[in-house]
């Protein structure tokens, strides 16, 4: 497409030259082949329409309405409920129970997350697509390539399954195997989180700059060493923040799991709710709030440590170093 000279500061094809912008440079766009602009794609309209439809469809299906908020009976119930929440139950007997349950929730979430990391990490390596000629079908040979692809799809499916089934359902299944109690909660959190973390890790490792991977591979590193010297150091802050976020989610999930008698704050929350003991509910919710906030702070601290490392030992790095006795 030839430029037709609609720009104000451009040179007309008559050769009447004017400066471009504030620069004293001359350009004659009529002499330049410009690439064709990409036209509007009508398929975009279809996509926008589809999104709007899904939103409308979901709103009508879940009976979204505003009237219930203004219904006098509902308002009265809300008032009663809110008034009942205060003051929280701070009696020593209940507080010591809350303390115990908080610790238990904390423990369930920590162990659930740690086990999930231990399972997710090796699975993420199998579920990671590597790039480059050297891992292509031609380079690996069809049998090995097929085995690799088999592992890839098998691992992805496994992770999808672990992720698709919510913690609560996993807990119900775990109870059949290990009985009631905190360990069923740990098992449920481990399986679900391993599914989530495995996929996240795989995708984070995949997204690492391929040229840096090739630099390390090119020095003779094998795949594990490439992971150690390129993929992990390059993604550590992201890995850490996703993992911390998962831990926080697990803390909340551990509470809900208590509802199906898998230990922690949730089991007591259910009892207090069922007995209409709202002051106790308030205390339990506050305990959960404090717990989640503490986890958040710990995560922030770790991330800060990782990101703002002042040049590793920069201040203590010697100006000269002694090499085999000689100053260099």
């Amino acid at each position: 497409m030839k430029y037709r000279g609609t720009g104000i500061t451009m040179i007309e094809s008559t050769g009447n030259k004017r400066p471009v912008g504030s620069w004293r440079l001359h350009v004659d766009l009529s002499q330049v082949e410009l690439p064709a602009r990409r036209g509007f794609r009508y398929s975009n309209l279809f996509i926008i329409g589809a999104v709007l439809f899904v939103i409308w469809f979901s709103g009508s299906g879940s009976k979204v309405a505003f009237e219930p908020f203004f219904d006098a009976r509902n308002q009265k119930q809300v008032a009663n409920f809110t008034a009942g929440l205060f003051p929280p139950d701070l009696s020593p007997g209940f507080m010591s129970l809350v303390w115990q349950l908080t610790i238990e929730t904390f423990q369930i979430s920590v162990i659930g997350t740690v086990l999930a990391i231990i399972i997710a990490f090796p699975l993420s390596l199998l579920a990671m697509r590597r790039r480059g000629d050297e891992v292509s079908r031609a380079a690996l040979g069809t049998p090995r390539w097929l085995i690799n692809s088999g592992f890839y799809y098998a691992t992805r499916s496994l992770l999808n399954l672990a992720r698709a089934i919510p913690e609560l359902i996993w807990a119900l299944i775990a109870i059949i195997f290990v009985g009631l109690g905190p360990f069923a909660g740990v098992v449920a959190l481990t399986i679900h989180s391993a599914g989530i973390l495995g996929k996240l890790y795989a995708e984070i490792f995949e997204a690492v700059d391929q040229r840096l991977v090739e630099t390390v591979r090119g020095a003779g590193a094998n795949e594990m060493q490439t992971l150690l010297f390129a993929r992990i150091p390059l993604t550590l802050p992201v890995l850490l923040s996703y993992t911390m976020f998962r831990w926080e989610c697990n803390m909340r999930a551990a509470t809900v799991l208590g509802f199906v008698a898998a230990g922690g704050l949730g089991s007591q929350l259910r009892v207090s709710m069922n007995t209409y003991n709202y002051p106790q509910v308030t205390t339990l919710v506050l305990a959960l709030l404090i717990l989640v906030t503490l986890v958040d702070l710990a995560g922030q601290f770790l991330r800060k440590r990782m990101l703002d490392v002042p040049d590793t030992n920069c201040e203590t790095a010697p100006e000269t170093i002694i090499v085999k006795g000689a100053r260099v």
């Binding site: 040229r211 630099t215 060493q225 150690l228 390059l234 590793t312």
Partner: peptide, 26 residues
């Protein structure tokens, strides 16, 4: 793209040994 940015100069130089190092030692 010659260096792994978050690693130290020392570690970046040591990458040169990986071809002769097993994973555990690495």
């Amino acid at each position: 793209h010659n260096v792994i940015p978050p690693l130290s100069v020392l570690q970046n130089i040591l990458i040169g040994r990986l071809g002769r190092t097993n994973t555990f030692r690495a």
